[in-house]
Design a protein around this nucleic acid. Structure first.
Length: 490
RNA sequence: CGGGGUGUGGCGCAGUUGGUUAGCGUGCUUGACUGGGGGUCAAGAGGUCGGGAGUUCAAGUCUCCCCACUCCGACCA
């Protein structure tokens, strides 16, 4: 029997973890806090990566690669940056092992201590800015618009598959500009790219805004973010883009001769999304029957399951299926025909449902006789009988419908979970229900911290183009000009 | 680092006041019947009971030490 997942209201973490493992996306590795991404999970990630990569290139960016190791001294050059990351860094101290005295095991060779320790990158600003220094002399060298696909390591105390792992995959864009305006424009542009990707590929509605100083990236002047609302009412930071000002340029002495023949520091941005998006995808769409993968990211968009008794029947079915399959592939649909004899149809139905394949076709003797096929959609779990000669034409539209429906559903949920609150009592009561609480805040880090201490809620973002209205901070009662979005977060 | 919990076939678990040959579910192998929603039956394989020491005629079970994992906190651009 399938495990009953309807208990997710009570224990969302457990539900999520089981889902990830059972759907064959990933599992914990032998290394504490690290994750093995399995082929199916990786296929989804690759689809995300490819789509993002295209969007980056369409906005003028190029890919490059920088070292995994960063000399320790690089980290101390930007004070806020080291402050933010120091507590979670893996450090390389030696470069050699040797057999121990008894010859039974391997020990670190103390004679092989590095002169300067190397840090396994938790993010690459420092090594990249040290490199950019050599690339930039004149305004003619600008802008630099580089992205890197890489892994990074952050030694977190507590980890969760995809959402927070000690090592994770991501992309990090690092750009250098002549002017402040251009760098700000870049960071704003990239957060829009992320929002676009989240909504149009992941079918995940997001809110866009800027972080409060407490939540800002270490070393940034402004952090833009996209936040998504998960099914349990918690917010997930899904992507960030930072305006770094001249902080890193100053720390790494990256200057250029301007059009006015002046030596000036360059302006910077950085932006990234990670495999955390996989967690976001899972927690946005999945239901009690398992994963639901939006068609645009599904490694398999359509699975075809034959139902047969004798092998002659299978041959007959296969002939029809192969026609449908090639018709669909001609339309750019990815199709898997699962004619394995090792699993029963019912087993396969459940399997693909659990893995979130958007559309399933089932064809049996009855269909062959009637010239029909059963079409089942994952998002609504509904089935309909369609004429064989029409099925290839309807599938692309159906996939679009599913993509749109998933987005609409998630959007509706996010809106239903977003509400204004106007008093501290109301805030404390409402935060227990989850969702975004839109409330006035006096703008001080102290107040935000006190609210967090008492309710575990943080300011997820401050809306950028919101209307201003006079109000009073729900906590301190001091004047406020704008509402901000609070939530508990992952 | 603090506070709980759990370690028993691949996975998930039961195991009574200490008492015969350590069970169950699932998965795996083989075969038959099956096949439109995780089938049924039959026969099999698979175990240092986390490790060590102790108490005892006898330890999966009791005591002590250690180890691992896990949950809750602290941490988390």
């Amino acid at each position: 029997m399938a495990k009953d997942f309807s208990s997710r209201e009570d224990n969302y973490s457990q539900w999520y973890n089981d889902l990830v493992v059972r759907a064959d996306l990933a599992e914990n590795s032998a290394v504490r806090g690290c994750m093995v991404i399995k082929p199916y999970g990786y296929a989804i990630w690759e689809n995300m990566r490819d789509a993002l990569d295209k969007m980056f290139k369409a906005t003028g960016h190029v890919n490059a690669y920088f070292p995994l190791f960063i000399p320790k001294s690089f980290f101390s050059r930007e004070a806020d940056h080291v402050e933010g990351f120091a507590k979670e860094c893996a450090v390389v101290t030696h470069y050699r092992l040797k057999k121990d005295e008894q010859g039974t095991g391997i020990v670190v060779d103390e004679d092989a201590r590095l002169e300067e320790e190397l840090i396994v990158r938790p993010t690459s600003e420092t090594i990249i800015w040290d490199t950019y220094k050599n690339w930039i002399q004149s305004y003619r060298d600008l802008p630099i618009l580089c992205n890197q696909w890489a892994n990074v390591v952050r030694w977190e105390m507590r980890t969760r598959l995809f959402l927070r792992t000690a090592e994770f995959l991501w992309q990090e864009g690092h750009t250098a500009h002549e002017t402040k305006e251009e760098a700000i424009e870049e960071s704003e542009k990239m957060i829009r790219v992320y929002a676009d990707f989240a909504e149009n590929f992941m079918a995940m509605p997001v809110m866009t805004g800027v972080k409060s100083p407490n939540e800002r990236f270490a070393g940034a002047l402004e952090t833009y973010c996209i936040e998504a609302m998960m099914q349990d009412g918690k917010s997930l930071q899904s992507g960030t883009s930072h305006f770094l000002g001249q902080n890193f340029a100053k720390a790494f002495d990256v200057r250029f001769l301007s059009r006015e023949n002046q030596l000036e520091y360059v302006w910077a941005s950085s932006w990234g999304v990670s495999t955390r998006l996989m967690g976001a995808l899972i927690m946005t769409h999945s239901d009690d029957n398992g994963l639901v993968i939006p068609p645009k990211l599904a490694p398999t968009q359509v699975v075809i399951v034959p139902i047969y008794k004798q092998t002659e029947q299978l041959a007959q079915i296969s002939e029809v299926v192969n026609k449908i399959k090639s018709d669909l592939e001609a339309k750019g649909v990815t199709v898997k025909y699962d004619d394995r004899d090792t699993q029963k149809p019912g087993w396969k139905f459940n399997e693909y449902e659990f893995k979130g394949v958007p559309v399933r076709l089932a064809i049996g003797p009855r269909d062959i006789e009637n010239g029909t096929v059963e079409v089942a959609r994952r998002d609504t779990l509904t089935k309909e009988i369609v004429a064989l000669n029409q099925v290839a034409d309807m599938i692309p539209n159906l996939l679009n419908d599913i993509q749109q429906n998933l987005y609409d559903r998630a959007k509706q949920r996010m809106e239903a979970n977003t509400r204004e609150v106007n008093s501290w009592e109301e805030f404390k009561e409402e935060i227990e229900k989850g969702g975004f609480l839109v409330a006035h805040w006096d703008g001080t880090p102290e107040t935000e911290q006190l609210i967090k201490d008492e309710t575990k809620a943080t300011i997820r973002f401050i809306p950028i183009n919101s209307h201003f209205e006079d109000g009073k901070c729900i906590f301190s009662g001091k004047p406020s000009k704008q509402r901000v979005f609070f939530a508990r977060a992952y």
